[in-house]
Design a protein around this nucleic acid. Structure first.
Lengths: 199, 199
DNA sequence: CATGGAACCGAACAAATGTTCGGTATGGCC
DNA sequence: GGCCATACCGAACATTTGTTCGGTTCCATG
């Protein structure tokens, strides 16, 4: 469910307070920040936020607000390599776990995501090279997004554009030609960032 | 000063509690865990721990214990930008925390590390571009390592090489000239990887 | 033996904090 | 107008929580 404007403000303030002070605010501190005359108002907003899953409360405990998605790290499933060159056979075998901070990569609460190891140099121009771990979120792609896509049965990492309303996948390397899907184009995930570990 | 055995136990429990519950324990919860008959005992230990700098307290606030260096393994301090172009004034202002997995980046146990935001395009050829968060470990650099270095009082990100036994810093961009330190060359950290978050 | 540190107890107190019960006001909507 | 959601107020209340004061016990050490 959607947060109201006020609820969003409260939530933002709770986040900001935690960053600034290292602990959660009390109801009365929130009250003072918004110059409210009653703690009940704060309690009400917090109830609503909890109702909507935006935060959690431990009844009776002081300063016990918890930000559900504020997990320090979650482990994304790491699948096989994704060719950033010519599409080739899709290797969908899980190779391990990649620990990342969902907040850092701006993943939305409970949003699905996974990691893939890049093979090839077709995204070189975007600074994504062989061996990088790309983080792909399962969300609706927008034009100009970099996406992990299944083209004609094979998966690849490219930038998604549209020409005459038809999707075209662009490499970020002049040595590669744009790909126009002939049969099917399935976007598996949208690039939200990547990680490189030096070897 | 050295912590006593008991103080260490208390500290460990506080850490464990925070991991398990996402918030700090109250004095009475600590008391119950150790089966103590008086909260005063807990308060006493916490005072001692604060005295020794092992943790911080916010007087009068509930559950307000704070672990000063708890970021050791999970969150790296993020400093200002590091120019990957021409060296410029070093901005050593802490900007926040970058949560990473030390294992993923192959950091050694207890090895110091920090993060810097890249500015400029001089490492473009290495796939490190403006806005990337580079992870730098405090360790001895080897030849061909990418390093964050302080050259003549200004910090920069370059590849470290040697010519005739003298250190030379190379950009990974033909538009930049090698830097030969005239006065001092202080290696601040060795590149172990980086993170990019799409914008 | 005297001294002092470390660990602990008991009880009371004050402050901080969450909870709950009514009530008001505004605006959109049928 | 009646209905509902949202936002808010005021005041009491019960709990949780931190703080403080005076004690005890044990043990190492001079």
């Amino acid at each position: 469910m959607q947060l109201t404007e006020r609820q969003q403000e409260i939530l933002d303030h709770v986040r900001a307070y935690r960053r600034a002070h290292g602990l959660m605010p009390s109801l009365r501190e929130i009250q003072q920040h918004f110059r409210l005359k009653s703690v009940a108002t704060v309690a009400q907003h917090l109830d609503a936020l909890q109702e909507k899953g935006a935060l959690q409360r431990h009844p009776g405990k002081a300063r016990s607000l918890a930000l559900p998605q504020a997990r320090v790290s979650v482990e994304l499933p790491l699948f096989g390599t994704i060719p950033a060159g010519r599409p080739s056979a899709n290797e969908a075998l899980a190779d391990g776990q990649v620990p990342i901070d969902p907040v850092l990569f701006r993943l939305r609460p409970r949003e699905e995501a996974f990691a893939l190891k890049v093979r090839g140099d077709s995204m070189e121009g975007a600074g994504i090279i062989d061996g990088d771990l790309v983080i792909l979120a399962c969300r609706e792609p927008k034009a100009r997004d970099i996406v992990g896509a299944l083209v004609d049965g094979e998966s690849t990492l490219k930038r998604l554009t549209f020409e005459h309303g038809k999707p075209v996948l662009l490499a970020e390397n002049p040595r590669y030609q744009p790909i126009i899907a002939t049969e099917e184009l399935l976007i598996q995930g949208v690039y939200v960032g990547h990680i490189r570990v030096s070897r």
